[in-house]
Amino acid sequence: MSEKSRGFLRDNALSLAFGAVFLATLGGQALSGVADFNAQQVADGLDPISLGEYLTSSSFGVDVMENWQSEYLQFFLYIFATVWLVQRGSSESKKPGEEGTESDKEQRVGRFADDDSPEWARRGGWRTAVFSRSLGLLMGGLFLLTWAASAVAGWAAYNSDQLGQLEDPVGFLGYLAAPDFWNRSFQNWQSEMLAVGSMAVFSVYLRQRGSPESKLVGTAHAETGQTG
């Protein structure tokens, strides 16, 4: 790294700020979630529960996990799709003609690595193969984990509802075939696909001065992948 370090907080401000807002909004979800849950309990003629009981309920668990899984699916798909697909003029895209995984020279891999390249970029073999895909592998792995967690927690929450309404609980495989599971999944997926697609194409014609997610303000609309 050639950039001069300016202290832990400023060097990591983006990650730390989003981490802090994540915790605050998760707290907001917990408080509004228990209020909503209790409104339903009262409507069903059941006893309200405490915040502590809500935070240790699968109802809270599935509401958190169904949103996490869609975010990691979004990033996983975007990371892979942008290897192979371009959007001419988008700050989010490679230039047309650069589709694919590119050459070792372009990617500074193996004998083309720099002195300060990561060890696994230089080593070759399976290490470089894994490291070359590590971001997508982690995002894809987190999608599968969080989606599985949303299924397990959703199953328990669904059965809890069923029992509250004096209906039969379902087995785990039965839940995987239930509309509840797929409705939770699809309603989160559709919003991610819309947001990603719109970001890719809106960034062709619109700018945000100073943001690396945008092209430079004066960049031509037709120019692709030029970040500010």
Binding site: V64, M65, L142, A149, V152, A153, G154
Partner: peptide, 30 residues
């Protein structure tokens, strides 16, 4: 690279703890 590695692992641990917690709640049938 002042501490970025620590933030990296903090994020990963928080995510995995969240996943494990949600799975545990589900398996316990809470």
């Amino acid at each position: 690279m002042n501490g970025a590695r620590a933030v990296f692992w903090l994020y990963l641990v928080v995510i995995l703890v969240g996943v494990a917690y949600a799975i545990a709640l589900g398996l316990m049938g809470r």
